[in-house]
């Protein structure tokens, strides 16, 4: 919160109804603008831009959502690497169990592969929306 105090030294916003600078306004400046020089460590800003666009879908209402106790972005794999990791862990766990099962049943019957990849499908689906938003 010290950040906000510091921010007011210049980016105070007398005519902004929402008080301290809005996240979308900051993001579009610190990601898209500024004077670019080549650094030693390169990150793909495109990844972030995709996220930003996704972020823009709710950034204006995030405070409202927080007040209402809605925190879907924290569990959306496309928005949170933590959630993503959880999803992967979960999938790993499921696959391990399946392997154990198959090994136990080895030789008795051919395994069914019906379930393979369902999680991947779901994930690529959510990214599809991001691309759509990007195309707009």
């Amino acid at each position: 919160m010290t950040e906000r105090t510091a921010e007011r030294t210049i980016a105070h916003a007398p005519s902004t109804p929402s008080g301290p600078a809005n996240l979308a306004d900051i993001l579009e400046r610190v990601l898209d603008k500024g004077i670019v020089i080549a650094g030693d460590i390169k990150i793909d800003l495109l990844d972030i831009e995709l996220l930003t666009i996704r972020l823009r879908l709710f950034v204006s209402s995030v405070e409202t959502a927080k007040k209402a106790g809605i925190n879907w972005w924290e569990t959306d794999p496309a928005l949170s690497t933590r959630a993503h990791r959880d999803a992967v862990d979960e999938e790993n766990q499921r696959l391990r169990e399946r392997i154990a099962e198959l090994e136990a049943a080895e030789g008795e019957e051919r395994p069914s592969r019906r379930d393979a990849g369902w999680d991947d499908e779901r994930r690529s689906h959510s990214w599809h929306h991001v691309k759509e938003a990007d195309g707009r």
Partner: peptide
């Protein structure tokens, strides 16, 4: 880290705060 919403916000605000100051 920047793909994490909270972390992205923290980094962006921290970056902006230094520049503004």
């Amino acid at each position: 880290r920047l793909a994490d919403r909270a972390e992205l916000e923290r980094c962006a605000r921290a970056h902006h705060s230094v520049i503004a100051a």
